[in-house]
C-alpha cells in the first residue's frame, strides 16, 4: 500500500526541529532512516499530518570518545556503526550485534537513534545499550537531559522520550580492563528479527566471570536483564554445574511473551540455549 498524504519539512537545526515539534504536537512525526516508520505509513498503521526529516541535523551525527564515554550520534547509520574503529575498540558488543540487524540495504539508511527511539522489543541495539550501561541524551525546549538506560525503555515501543523531544545521542562507558562482550540470537532466516536474542557483558579473570550482564531481547516487551542467572555465575569458574544453575535461574528472571510461532515455554527454553552459548563465549575470551 501507499502512505497517506502528509506535509514534509526538512529541518536544518535543532532549535528549528524543537520549534516545529512544539507547534505541531501530536500531528508531527520525526523521520530518521525511515526503515521502521515508512513501513507503518505504507501499511497505514500511522498517519501523521507532517513528517519532520532530521537527516540534515549535524548536531545528531558523529561518533566520538570523551571523558571515558563513547558518544554515538542518533543519526549514525547502522552501516557506519558497523565499520567504526571507535565502536569496535570501545563497544565491541555493538560491532558484534550489527551484522544481525536486517540487511545491507536497510543498514544503509536505518539509524542507531531510530532503533533506540523505536524500542522494538525484538531490536538488537536497545538490549546492547542495557548490557553496556549506557545513557541517552535527549533534547527539548528546556535544553538537554540525560537518562540512564535502566530508566529509558518503558515497554512495547515506549521510551522516556517525550513527544516534543528528540534523541540526540547515546553515551556508553568505554570497555574496561578485563571486560568482554558476547552476542547471539536465534532467527528463522538471516536478517529477520530474533525469536530470542542475548547481548552480554562481563568482567573476566581467567575462567572466572564477574559483573555479568545478560540482556535478553524479543522475550518481554522491552529488553530485560537476567539478574538471578547473572548471580549464579558471578565469581565462580564457569563449569557445567554453574552453567546449569544459570539456565535454571532464568525462570525467575524472564516472563516471556508468546508470539505467533513460539510459546512462552519455547522462548524460555531458547533463552537457556542462548545462555549456554553466550556464557561459554564470555568465559573463553568473548569475541
Amino acid at each position: 500500500m501507499k502512505a497517506p498524504s502528509f506535509d514534509y519539512v526538512k529541518v536544518q537545526s535543532l532549535p528549528e526541529l524543537l520549534g516545529v515539534l512544539v507547534e505541531r504536537g501530536d500531528d508531527a512525526k520525526i523521520i530518521a532512516g525511515g526503515q521502521s516508520l515508512v513501513p507503518t505509513l505504507n501499511m497505514r498503521l500511522s498517519a501523521p499530518e507532517i513528517l519532520i526529516d532530521i537527516n540534515g541535523l549535524e548536531e545528531l551525527k558523529g561518533i566520538a570518545v570523551a571523558d571515558g564515554y563513547l558518544r554515538i550520534g542518533a543519526l549514525t547509520r547502522h552501516y557506519e556503526l558497523g565499520r567504526s574503529d571507535e565502536v569496535a575498540a570501545h563497544a565491541p558488543l555493538l560491532a558484534q550485534a550489527l551484522p544481525h540487524i536486517a540487511h545491507e540495504a536497510i543498514r544503509s539508511r536505518g539509524t542507531f537513534g531510530g532503533s533506540i527511539a523505536n524500542a522494538d522489543p525484538a531490536a538488537e541495539l536497545p538490549a546492547c545499550l542495557l548490557a553496556l550501561r549506557g545513557r541517552l541524551v535527549i533534547a527539548g525546549q528546556n535544553g538537554e537531559r540525560t537518562v540512564d538506560v535502566a530508566d529509558f525503555f518503558h515497554g512495547l515501543y515506549e521510551t522516556a522520550i517525550e513527544p516534543e523531544e528528540v534523541l540526540v545521542a547515546a553515551e556508553i562507558p568505554v570497555l574496561g580492563g578485563g571486560e568482554r562482550a558476547a552476542f547471539d540470537e536465534l532467527v528463522m532466516r538471516h536478517g529477520d528479527y530474533a525469536i530470542v536474542g542475548l547481548a552480554a557483558m562481563a568482567k573476566a579473570d581467567g575462567e572466572i566471570l564477574s559483573d555479568v550482564r545478560l540482556s535478553f531481547f524479543s522475550v518481554e516487551g522491552k529488553p530485560v536483564l537476567a539478574a538471578a542467572a547473572a548471580d549464579a555465575v558471578n565469581g565462580k569458574p564457569l563449569n557445567e554445574e554453574v552453567l546449569q544453575a544459570a539456565q535454571a535461574a532464568l525462570e525467575n528472571d524472564l516472563d516471556p511473551l508468546s508470539d505467533l510461532y513460539n510459546t512462552a515455554a519455547t522462548k524460555l527454553h531458547l533463552a537457556r540455549v542462548l545462555t549456554g552459548r553466550v556464557l561459554s563465549k564470555l568465559a573463553s575470551g568473548g569475541a
Binding site: A3, K10, G34, Q35, P39, N55, A105, S108
Partner: peptide, 18 residues
Amino acid sequence: TVRLDGRITRSCLVFAVQ
C-alpha cells in the same frame, strides 16, 4: 533495491522528496 548516493537502498522506504 536501487543505489542512492552510492549505497544500496530500498526505494520503497525513501520518499522522493528525501
